[in-house]
């Protein structure tokens, strides 16, 4: 078992009076898919946004490759090689696939972009992920289907020599065939040696692609387990009650504030 590439220790986050994350610990390992599960409002998206530098955590430590790091904005996270595929896809509809994939990190000089190099890199990345659903990389995102958009968003995250990819409910809005494709893509990311965090509500998906499961219950980390050591039922219980047998929070009821 490898050392975690990304570790969180005691992360807290409040929005005004609402304490959303309580002393959350999490470890992400390279080459593995860690599923992050939890009920609606458990704080999964907030946790991801704290890692990505969208929200500043109130307290807690983030370690990347064993070293403490400070992430103050999306740029800092990107510089470390942490990429996020957001639940509400962060794509600009009016731009094409290439433009979206390189948004904020365009190649070429500020006053003359290198379109050729960006287009070639975008095509290579899509090809390396065996993506075969878009006709042309110059198609505007507004003309893509939900699954195609998700694919672009994921491909965008691997374009940058990234080390960790966080996916927030990438399959929530997709049909069966498209979900299939995205899950394959997720697995392929881990096989390429990336640390992958997958947020999903679908237990079948979680058990199919993940190596470990981390359960958030009302903003607390209830359990971090190997997928092969638990059953569907146990995970569902952890999600809904924060506890299952000897797994989970000692006294989940105190978590209710």
């Amino acid at each position: 078992m490898s050392e975690p590439i990304l570790e969180l220790h005691g992360v807290n986050k409040s929005f005004g009076p609402v304490h959303v994350l309580h002393d959350v610990d999490l470890a992400v390992r390279a080459g593995e898919v860690t599923a992050l599960v939890g009920d609606n409002g458990a704080g999964k998206s907030t946790l991801v946004k704290c890692i990505a530098g969208i929200h500043a955590a109130d307290s807690g430590e983030v370690r990347f490759r064993g070293k403490p790091v400070h992430i103050h904005g999306p740029r800092d996270a990107a510089d470390l090689g942490i990429e996020v595929v957001y639940q509400d896809l962060a794509l600009a509809d009016n731009l094409d696939i290439v433009q979206n994939m390189f948004l904020g990190r365009e190649r070429g000089s500020a006053w003359l972009l290198d379109e050729a190099s960006m287009e070639q890199a975008a095509r290579q990345t899509l090809a390396s992920l065996s993506v075969r659903t878009v006709k042309s990389v110059r198609t505007p995102v507004s003309a893509l289907s939900g699954g195609q958009r998700q694919t672009v968003a994921i491909a965008k995250s691997v374009l940058w020599d990234s080390k960790v990819v966080l996916l927030d409910e990438p399959t929530a809005a997709l049909g069966v065939a498209q979900t299939r494709q995205v899950l394959d893509l997720v697995r392929r990311l881990a096989e390429q040696g990336l640390g992958v965090v997958l947020i999903s509500h679908n237990m079948a998906d979680v058990f199919e692609v993940s190596d470990r499961i981390a359960v958030l219950y009302l903003g607390r980390m209830a359990a971090e387990v190997q997928t092969k050591d638990v059953t569907h039922g146990q995970v569902v219980e952890l999600i809904t009650a924060g506890r299952s047998g000897d797994l989970g929070l000692a006294r989940p009821d105190t978590a209710v504030v």
Binding site: A52, I54, G73, P74, R75, A78, V84, Y86, D88, L89, A90, L91, A92, D93, N94, L95, Q99, N100, L103, G104, R105, E106, G108, A110, W111, L112, L113
Partner: peptide
């Protein structure tokens, strides 16, 4: 059409949040 500044103008107009997350 050709500069980073122009690209970012379109991005901000198309999806401000996406632009922000892209570090613009």
């Amino acid at each position: 059409n050709r500069t980073r500044y122009g690209r970012h103008i379109y991005a901000v107009g198309g999806n401000r949040e996406a632009a922000r997350r892209a570090g613009i």
